[in-house]
Amino acid sequence: MKFKVIENENVSTVFLNGEIDMDIADDVREIVFPLIDSGKEVHLNLKDVQYMDSSGISVIIESNQRAREKNTKVELKEVSQPVEKVLAMARKFL
């Protein structure tokens, strides 16, 4: 999986793509967590993510918790339909 990151003032937008599972989740953490730790607001653009399972949801939960600790925030942008379905199932946990 290749990531694209666009920096815009105090917002970093990470464009994720492909399928996010247990095998990929740590790669996402390695990209996203340092951005959060730098205090920036992070947008995760999910328009090109065709599949996400509980490992991806875990990354989102961890990112939100981490962002709160750093007094910043993480937002999901352009969520693809397949990911939206998984998020809808997980929403009661988010």
Binding site: S54, I57, S58, I61, E62, Q65, M89, A90, F93, L94
Partner: peptide, 19 residues
């Protein structure tokens, strides 16, 4: 699966299977 008010990673997979 974990309790619904327990917001932390993990345990979601079992919840998805059961759902």
């Amino acid at each position: 699966h974990r309790e619904i008010d327990n917001v932390k990673p993990g345990g979601l997979g079992t919840f998805f299977m059961q759902e």
